[in-house]
Design a binder for these strands. Structure first.
Lengths: 256, 256
DNA sequence: TGAGAGTCTCAAGCTCAGCTTGAAGGCAAG
DNA sequence: CTTGCCTTCAAGCTGAGCTTGAGACTCTCA
């Protein structure tokens, strides 16, 4: 794993956009550190492996050190995203990149309209297992176009909590999606106080599922525990689907 | 690999015989042979493996032989397609199926290479707009493999109501899916009485959405009413997603 | 009422993708 | 010249996704 520290300083301005045109290459350690927030399971050896597999091809110093340009980093981010969110094998990612079909979501710049265009639309499956990726508040606000006070409201209600690191609020993937969803609801006039309805039912359902799986979850046998966690994931998926169906059923009456 | 031969012929009508409705279940060998065209790397052991991984759950004969119904075969095809064309790992496919996000694309035959892209067929699995299709109880029971008393229980609880036509109970698409979901939950030990939790929260959320869209829904202007219905669909989708996220968030605490 | 094709379970094994680890050493900069 | 980051290369590890027997049972048909 990266054991850098002062290299971090250089890494900090991964996406900084004030420097002149060229030449802000980073060493492998800096790149790794810079991406660690979004991709917690990144590692130096993994980056090297990706190069070995012909997915990257950074410049080198005279002495043989890898030097990553900004676009190299973008490419790497794309690779990691395709791998984590779209479940594509490296062999396929290589082809997608080669055929120019890459297109990073939002990325470092612009980001007008999330588009994603005619790409494959598979959402990152939300799972009980947390991969640990964290996003700074500023990114979340920009991506979701959420009102800052709405985020505060959510924190006040205890719906999200974030994490304070070095003076910056960070949120995980789920929290980011919650913010996006609530923002969407707000556009239709569903205000913050109405969220209690959602929150309390989620709490009650979670308690129900917990009760059912409690014995297995408390088991000391890791095998059994793992099975219980998988069951939990499936139960959550089915339960959510059922809730959706019931809602639809109710709404149908309303709609006429 | 497929080791079938003429037995396949017999297998086709294993359970046909005297029953009225066309319930033609097939043995594993017949299923395998039938899918071999579209999926050359299918095999009997693979189908069994998928069941082991909780992706399939066919009926059994008294002697323990697996019997695949038409919908089992559809499900299997969907699994194989998601695996081959979308590169999804089984763990994710399981979730997609559990949450009803699957939806098979007609597909008939051939379709080799299937050049990615295209195919944006959005087939909204569940919509507020009812297409009116109805299914007789017998079909629903066979497809969902639900216990008949569970269906009665659901009717008693007012979760589904069905329709009585010529002495036969008919259910719409949504009701059928509700039955399937509840059956799935039952497999994990979530009993009928627990459904109150889901039902009441759905009711409350529906009431909330209705309240918000009431003016527009009551409008005499058909244009405005149509917009309101669309908004209702979107709201339902976002609300369901939000509920899912909140549930996940809660479960994460439980999981450790 | 067998004979024989088909199927069952269960445990062990196999292959490949996707990394990780360790050894042995070179580069960069205070 | 020392300290920490970097290099290559070979070997090893882990989990997903099956496959392969072994031994026993089931189903259909002559």
């Amino acid at each position: 794993m990266a054991t850098t520290n002062d290299a971090t300083e250089r890494a900090a301005d991964v996406a900084a956009a004030d420097e002149g045109p060229p030449q802000k290459s980073m060493t492998i350690g800096a790149v790794c550190k810079g991406l660690a927030q979004e991709f917690p399971d990144i590692s130096i050896s993994k980056i090297r492996y990706l190069e070995d597999q012909k997915l990257l091809n950074p410049r080198r110093t005279a002495g043989g050190y890898r030097l990553y340009s900004a676009s190299d980093v973008v490419r790497l981010r794309t690779i990691l995203r395709l791998q984590r969110d779209e479940f594509l094998p490296l062999r396929v990612i290589r082809q997608e990149l080669a055929s120019g079909r890459a297109a990073d979501g939002e990325g470092a710049v612009a980001a007008t309209v999330q588009s994603v265009a005619g790409k494959r639309k598979r959402r990152a499956s939300v799972s009980v297992a947390d991969d640990g990726a964290m996003y700074p508040l500023s990114d979340v606000l920009e991506e979701t176009r959420a009102a800052p006070e709405l985020v505060r409201e959510l924190e006040d209600y205890g719906v999200i909590k974030g994490e304070l690191r070095a003076g910056v609020h960070y949120y995980d993937e789920t929290e980011r999606e919650i913010i996006a969803a609530v923002t969407e609801l707000a556009r239709y006039g569903v205000g913050g106080r109405n969220l209690r309805v959602f929150r309390s039912s989620a709490d009650r359902e979670a308690a129900l599922l917990q009760q059912i799986l409690a014995p297995a979850l408390r088991s000391r046998n890791p095998e059994r525990r793992k099975e219980a966690l998988e069951a939990l994931e499936n139960l959550a998926a089915v339960a959510s689907h059922l809730k959706h169906l019931l809602l639809i059923r109710d709404l149908r009456k309303i709609a006429g």
